[in-house]
Design a protein around this nucleic acid. Structure first.
Lengths: 214, 214
DNA sequence: TCAATGTCAACGAACGATCGTTTCAAATAA
DNA sequence: TTATTTGAAACGATCGTTCGTTGACATTGA
């Protein structure tokens, strides 16, 4: 399949990857091309030849750097989850132990990651199911840990009387969901900074968990 | 590609379609099989032979009822959006003109549709991009109308002093997003009714828009 | 200094398998 | 009968992947 879809799955135009070791040569251009194509057409809708064409490389060259097409996706999924986890870690390390501030830091990290790396986020989220189990396992593990962490923050907030929400796990699901989707529509062209979107979503998250005014 | 992914994109196990005219014979079993497979593996990850195998039919039989594989997806997308629009219409017809109640009715319709027809919702949302433009256009139109309707309700609520939210369109995006994702995790096995989930999400929506206590 | 050698990423071509789709005859329903 | 639906087989195209080779370049020995 080689045709582009006219209704885009990601608003962002350019693939964006964080700085990497080995960000030179065919490895890098293949990863960039795969990121753009997987985000726009999905894993199953993208052929190795499509990737090679966009990367301006021969199909065989891809196999000099990756064992298979699935491993290209696995690498993108790994990078995406690593960036996400890194932002979570930094957010937690720098924040005061008040649930209200912890929740804000996590939501800000979550949302701004999806706005800063929309294609990476879309691929890591929407194409995870295309990976064989053993390649998907690490990402699924990170995902569970992040969700658990957020749940513990909300539950602690309820226990301390700072939050008021009937089913904390449902609130966590809702907060996570609204952040995920940012990757699909955010682009700097909207005239809104990623930080501004994050600010708005922090306020939404506070409201969802019924955070008392500081 | 014929292998099943172990990490599911939809928690629900069985495909579910609303009552249809012509819900008999090969047309129906093909549509059911395609719904299940597109939801689990995506459009690009599903072959016509996969569909025919699950439907216990020959590949050629599919072409006696659909002009192409894309038209099978288009029909599922059409049905999904029709169900969604129908619930929206009913919700609006039966509700009092108070913004608070209008928002509740819309969110309830949105969420319960995604819980009642999770596979249909996932396919209509996640695989829309795989359709050629002319087949996707009607769905995109309905989508824009629904979003616009929700935005008008929130803006009216703000104008009447019943809601308090800085950027109504961001609130609408957040509310829509959290509802969408319900299709990915909801299953009756959770021991929670679709109505109960809808109730919780109505409360979240009220909080997001800063609805004054009735 | 300069040819000979070793290394390795990239290449063009091709593999068998599977893709979406078509043909057409047999079976079935009216 | 006639009209419709199904089945087995096959079409050319494209799939993911592999093959054997090329060419650029660093290292070597004289």
């Amino acid at each position: 399949m080689s045709k582009a879809s006219p209704h885009r799955r990601v608003a962002a135009e350019k693939p964006r990857l964080p700085e990497l070791p080995a960000r030179r040569g065919a490895y890098a251009v293949v990863l960039d091309a795969a990121l753009r194509l997987f985000a726009e057409r999905g894993y199953g809708g993208t052929s190795v030849r499509d990737i090679a064409t966009v990367a301006e490389v021969q199909p065989a060259t891809l196999y000099a750097h990756f064992p298979s097409k699935a491993h290209v996706l696995a690498e993108l999924v790994r990078i995406g989850h690593e960036v996400h986890q890194q932002r979570f870690r930094e957010a937690l390390l720098e924040v005061q132990p008040a649930p209200r501030l912890q929740l804000a830091a996590m939501v800000r990290a979550h949302v701004s990651m999806h706005a800063d790396y929309p294609m990476l986020a879309v691929v890591a989220n929407a194409e995870l199911h295309a990976l064989p189990a053993e390649l998907a396992a690490p990402a699924l593990q990170l995902r569970r840990e992040s969700e658990q962490l957020l749940l513990e923050i909300v539950e602690r907030g309820v226990r301390l009387g700072e939050f008021s929400v009937a089913q904390p796990w449902l609130a966590v699901a809702a907060i996570g969901s609204m952040g995920l989707r940012v990757a699909n529509w955010y682009t700097p062209d909207l005239g809104m900074s990623a930080d501004a979107v994050a600010d708005a979503y922090v306020e939404f998250a506070w409201r969802i968990v019924g955070a008392k005014p500081q």
